[in-house]
């Protein structure tokens, strides 16, 4: 059962990474990037690295999202390219 879940996590990870690159709305890109971080944290849990997963969940899916949203608030919400 475990490897099916891992494959699913990897698929969500790759889809999230590609759509974060492609999307024009930067706020949506930040949310998708948080999904990416959360998925990589889940993959680290499945590999048994709980400490690293904890750090990734707290920093990647929490703090970095807040800082990115602040940067968007102070600049523009649409990507130029």
């Amino acid at each position: 059962m475990q490897w099916q879940i891992e494959i699913l996590l990897y698929i969500i990870l790759i889809v999230a990474a590609l759509s974060a690159l492609g999307i024009r709305n930067l706020l949506a890109a930040v949310v998708i990037l948080n999904i990416f971080s959360f998925m990589s944290a889940s993959i680290m849990v499945s590999m048994g690295a709980i400490d690293v997963a904890f750090t990734e969940a707290v920093v990647g899916a929490g703090a970095v999202g807040v800082f990115n949203i602040l940067a968007i608030l102070r600049t523009s919400r649409k990507s130029l390219d």
């Binding site: 709980i50 400490d51 904890f54 750090t55 707290v58 920093v59 929490g62 703090a63 807040v66």
Partner: peptide, 17 residues
């Protein structure tokens, strides 16, 4: 248990944020 200064510090800062 899993945890430590970095994780706890970020959570403590997140409470203020």
């Amino acid at each position: 248990s899993p945890g430590g200064g970095f994780q706890g510090g970020v959570i403590l800062g997140a409470a203020v944020i």
